[in-house]
């Protein structure tokens, strides 16, 4: 069974390429049982979203 270290590799990789069916299934299975990795998955996604807005100061534009 896949462990957290390998799961985190796939959580990162999916931001670069689409995962294979096999990879997606193993990751989904791991995430369904591991709260820490679910947090990690959210954080990687948040990093990705946040970076797209990098440089924007959150003030009302003049």
């Amino acid at each position: 069974m896949m462990m957290c270290k390998e799961a985190s590799r796939l959580m990162s990789l999916k931001h670069e390429r689409s995962l294979t069916f096999q990879e997606r299934m193993s990751l989904r299975f791991h995430l369904s049982m591991c709260g820490a990795c679910r947090q990690c998955d959210r954080q990687f996604r948040l990093l990705h979203e946040a970076c797209r807005g990098y440089g924007i100061d959150h003030e009302v534009d003049p």
């Binding site: 957290c4 390998e6 959150h58």
Partner: peptide, 21 residues
């Protein structure tokens, strides 16, 4: 064994929108 070490185990950051703001 491939599991998170206790000191680096991810915790919740709260609401993502609030974090980015």
């Amino acid at each position: 064994n491939g599991r998170w070490e206790a000191h680096s185990r991810p915790a919740s950051w709260g609401d993502p929108d609030a974090v980015i703001e």
